[in-house]
Design a protein around this nucleic acid. Structure first.
Length: 561
RNA sequence: CGGAACGUGGCGCAGUCCGGUAGCGUACCUGACUGGGGGUCAGGUGGUCGCGGGUUCAAAUCCCGCCGUUCCGACCA
């Protein structure tokens, strides 16, 4: 393709609205333009990449026996009411104003609609159905360019099986296909979900990429692959060792001491001698949560432990419940439920609040002084702590969710009436799985991982073109002739070539554009080297340059590409 | 939905406090020169200053309302 005849609007300056690297690069390289918040047009260069990514996804889905559909994005609302998902999605679901239609945010309903009354026998299964299609979600806050949009491309797949055992197989196939897809796209990714090699796992796995632009926080171990959302992540940290001798309880006057740090400073003690108190309200009842030192309470873990939603107590509530303000609260004489983090298990000689302003209590022996205490894992894991699966250290960072595979079960089959008959003629609901991949997210994640200060660095798999051919001075006849000839030769040899044939652009301009657009190889045709019958071949990633004789160019490319 | 910032030729910004000729860089058009890291010179095109209302002799500028975009938070099947 010749640049002089193409629509590739590159930008020299960084657009004010773009913050994350992938977004900046897509805008600067002329791949996308925003139409409205979270709504983007893919320009020709961007769409070429999206098509290449889609083709890889398609091949790997077909490899595991998937059959491609193309379903409507416009759905009758009635079907969504049958599964109660008009309610479940709430404001996220787009509604059409002049018909009883909704814009589909996903396609469990429609796929199940097609399966019901058609997939009637155990002989009809297994089935793997998928599509690559536009989804619509009224995100309250679109952000990070294409990473979180109101309209986006998703590969969504659905499996139909006779049993949970058969579903496990379908799930495994998708796990395999997803790894193949992300490997082929050369993404550095990891998998979150308790999938420790044993069959089944938890029934859900997320494929993620580390990125500051990510919206999830995860703990990950590079050496064994352990990965978990921070909401559930565990880590190995020492508890408070029990001292041989327990001191007696003693009340200490601690004026104006509010935080653990201030308490340690005031009493010249270590924070691991302190039990931090937090009051939460759950089901209208107060709960005292004790943490060792400055450990953070993980509210998700607490909610799981209590099997109910929690919220921190308001200042007025704290005074009413304990008789003291935050900073002076503790377990001694506390009249309600007490849960302590596992690090405090059976600890003694602890300092904590006295439930009396400006006083703390020392010498607390939990088994001796706090009879009705429960223990649980309530802390938030931190970088540098021990991996729960191996001897290595955890790292905590934010990440982007690229794909999700999920064992659905029979929920949709039951609510939409998709049943089949088994060998004995008995009726059962079809057992389903659901599997998604964000297509633009693959693109964004790739860019997050593959760029430098000058621009994009594509690999050959998803690059929009293999080669950018630069005719430096297109007013010189020799340069025009040589580069036009190379363009034909390379195209004939099967390479996709973006030919910078612009007459009015200076050499420097073309170099900058080529580095920004980032095709794996650049061929530079200038009159100086042409005098020796040579052109320059540049590797965008490594920066290596080769002077190559005109007749050898295809051979040289085959050698290094 | 809560907090904050911004909105001025295609893009990046100044001007707003203190009301009075819309400005700079870049891009674009014409011509000449230049031709290996976003080139030089000369001459040009292009703006309802987000929208609506108000104050005023006069509003990009002051006041009120709305809209849009971005960031932080909440939310995220």
């Amino acid at each position: 393709m010749k640049i002089s005849k193409s629509f590739i609007p590159t930008l020299k300056e960084v657009p004010a609205d773009a913050v994350v690297q992938s977004h900046i690069l897509m805008l600067r390289a002329g791949m996308i333009r925003m139409v409205s918040a979270g709504i983007y047009s893919l320009l020709p260069l961007g769409y070429r990449v999206v098509r290449k990514i889609s083709e890889i996804v398609r091949e790997e889905m077909n490899n595991i026996g998937g059959q491609e559909f193309h379903l409507p994005a416009l759905n009758p609302k009635e079907i969504w009411e049958q599964t109660d998902r008009v309610n479940a999605f709430g404001d996220i679901l787009f509604h059409v104003k002049n018909r009883e239609y909704v814009l589909a945010p996903t396609h469990e309903e429609i796929m199940t609609y097609h399966a019901r009354n058609v997939v009637k026998s155990y002989k009809d299964m297994p089935q793997i159905w998928y599509q690559i299609q536009t989804k619509f979600r009224n995100e309250p806050r679109p952000r990070s360019g294409v990473i979180r949009g109101r309209q986006f491309l998703m590969k969504d797949a659905y499996t139909f099986d006779v049993s949970y055992e058969a579903l496990d197989k379908a799930y495994m196939l998708h796990d395999k296909a997803y790894r193949a897809i992300f490997d082929r796209c050369k993404l550095k990714y990891f998998v979150v979900g308790a999938f420790s090699g044993a069959m089944g796992g938890t029934g859900s796995e997320e494929f993620m990429v580390k990125s500051d632009a990510g919206e999830d926080t995860v703990a990950h171990c590079d050496s064994c692959g352990y990965a978990a959302n921070l909401e559930v992540a565990t880590s190995i940290v020492n508890g408070k060792a029990r001292d041989k001798k327990s001191d007696a309880l003693k009340e200490i006057h601690t004026p104006d001491v509010k935080s653990i740090d201030e308490l340690c400073e005031f009493l010249k003690i270590d924070e691991t001698q302190c039990a931090k108190s937090r009051i939460y309200i759950s089901d209208g009842q107060p709960v005292l949560v004790l943490m060792l030192g400055n450990d953070d309470v993980n509210e998700s873990k607490l909610e799981k432990e209590l099997a109910a939603a929690v919220r921190p107590g308001h200042p007025e509530e704290l005074a009413e419940i304990t008789g003291a303000d935050a900073g002076s609260i503790g377990p001694i004489k506390f009249k309600h439920r007490i849960i302590a983090d596992n690090r405090l298990k059976d600890a003694n000689n602890l300092y904590s609040g006295a439930n009396k302003n400006d006083y703390h209590i020392g010498g607390i022996d939990l088994p001796r002084d706090v009879k009705k205490i429960e223990y649980a894992d309530l802390r938030t894991a931190q970088s540098g702590e021990g991996c729960p699966n191996c001897d290595s250290k955890l790292e905590v960072f934010s990440a982007i969710e690229l794909g999700h595979i999920f064992k659905l079960g029979t929920k949709y089959a039951e609510s939409l009436g998709a049943f089949y008959l088994d060998e004995k003629g008995e009726e059962h609901p079809i057992v389903m799985g659901s599997y998604g991949i964000g297509i633009e997210r693959i693109l964004a994640c790739f860019l997050e991982q593959n760029h430098d200060e000058f621009g994009i660095i594509w690999n050959k798999v998803i690059a929009p073109f293999d080669i950018q051919l630069l005719g430096l001075n297109m007013k010189k006849k020799e340069v025009v002739e040589a580069s036009e000839k190379l363009y034909k030769e390379l195209t004939t040899a099967g390479y996709e070539v973006l030919f910078d044939d612009r007459v009015d652009a200076q050499a420097g301009f073309k170099f900058k554009d080529a580095d920004l657009l980032g095709m794996p190889l650049q061929i530079i045709v200038g009159d100086k080297k042409l005098k020796d019958n040579k052109v320059e071949l540049k590797n965008r990633k490594t920066g290596e340059r080769y002077d190559v004789k005109l007749g050898d160019i295809v051979n040289k490319i085959e050698e290094i590409y």
